[in-house]
């Protein structure tokens, strides 16, 4: 039987926001019934445009936001029965911007060792120092940087510090929220290589959130495509990228600009506007931007269909 590091069942998160003085309250469905399961040791890539709810899922999993309904299991345990420290011991995040996610007034050694000290997992200063040295070596940081401050480090080094901080307690799952999008390409490659190495060395599970499909294809074993709070397509990476079924996945893939001077710019039929999540379109939420939209799409919301390990939520999917 497959052991799951992380599972969500029909998880929902709604925010109540003010619609203005005369309009009363409105509900924003940031995450609208998402089912994800990540087997131990695998990498799930979560992709979608900004505003689709990727980061809200990350916050729910980290216990930073409370879910409205649904169930979320971390290593087999329901999240609401866990304390925040217990969650943090199993899941650690790496955020997008290493310039704002590190405290500028603390030294690198202090930043990296904070999870140990917070959890009370270390036996004295010598133990902390040894663990910091070990993890710095693993992520490829020179030991002399220990007493430096974040502003003295480059972007790539800072991201390594963030990874070291996430890994020092040896968590099972690492949640990477756009970990390379603030970095230069040559540094991005270094970090991606490191993440792949660490996974096999430390037997980690990644939830890798990104809007860069080329990066996700490179790193992920499974991919879920999100649109307006719902997963519209999910499957193993190779199959999903070579054989996309949902028109949105197809459009996303067509927008990836691979470096090839022989090709021109792709024709994207997506229209300009990402819909307002407070006022989502009727029926299939993607229908106003869809090139294959038919009458039924604007009336009935499609159900998720699972066939040979692939999930698609569309009335008229391709090759499915």
């Amino acid at each position: 039987m497959v052991e799951y590091a992380l599972q969500t069942e029909n998880i929902k998160k709604e925010y109540t926001i003010s619609g203005g003085i005369f309009h009363g309250k409105k509900t924003l469905k940031a995450v609208d019934g998402v089912n994800l399961s990540i087997p131990k040791g695998s990498i799930l890539g979560l992709v979608g445009e900004s505003g689709c709810g990727k980061t809200t899922i990350a916050k729910l999993i980290l216990g930073l936001e409370k879910k409205t309904s649904g169930e979320l299991y971390i290593a087999g345990k329901e999240i609401s029965s866990m304390g925040s420290k217990e969650i943090a011991r199993i899941i650690q995040p790496v955020f997008q911007d290493p310039y704002s996610s590190l405290n500028p007034r603390k030294s690198i050694a202090k930043i990296i060792s904070l999870p140990l000290r917070a959890q009370g997992l270390a036996n004295g200063a010598a133990d902390i120092e040894k663990k910091v040295d070990d993890i710095m070596e693993i992520v490829g940081l020179a030991p002399r940087l220990k007493h430096n401050y974040p502003n003295q480090l480059s972007g790539g080094q800072r991201q390594r510090v963030a990874v070291a901080r996430a890994l020092i307690m040896r968590p099972e799952v690492v949640l990477c929220d756009e970990p390379t999008s603030a970095l230069d390409v040559s540094v991005q490659a270094q970090i991606l290589n490191m993440l792949l190495d660490l996974r096999s060395e430390l037997n980690l599970t990644y939830l890798f959130i990104s809007h860069d499909l080329a990066v996700v294809e490179h790193i992920a074993s499974h991919v879920a495509v999100m649109y307006l709070g719902r997963i519209v397509e999910e499957g193993n990476a190779e199959d999903l990228f070579s054989n996309p079924s949902h028109p949105y996945t197809q459009a996303l893939l067509a927008s990836v600009l691979t470096p090839d001077p022989e090709l021109g710019l792709p024709e994207i039929q997506l229209g300009i506007e990402y819909p307002n999540p407070i006022d989502p379109p009727s029926g299939c939420s993607f229908h106003p931007r869809c090139s294959k939209c038919q009458e039924k799409c604007s009336i009935v919301a499609p159900e998720a269909v699972i066939k040979s390990g692939k999930l698609v939520e569309c009335h008229y999917p391709d090759n499915f």
Binding site: L252, A254, V256, L270, I272
Partner: peptide, 8 residues
């Protein structure tokens, strides 16, 4: 910008 918007 998002990838889809970037291409546009």
């Amino acid at each position: 910008l998002d990838v889809t918007i970037q291409a546009q």
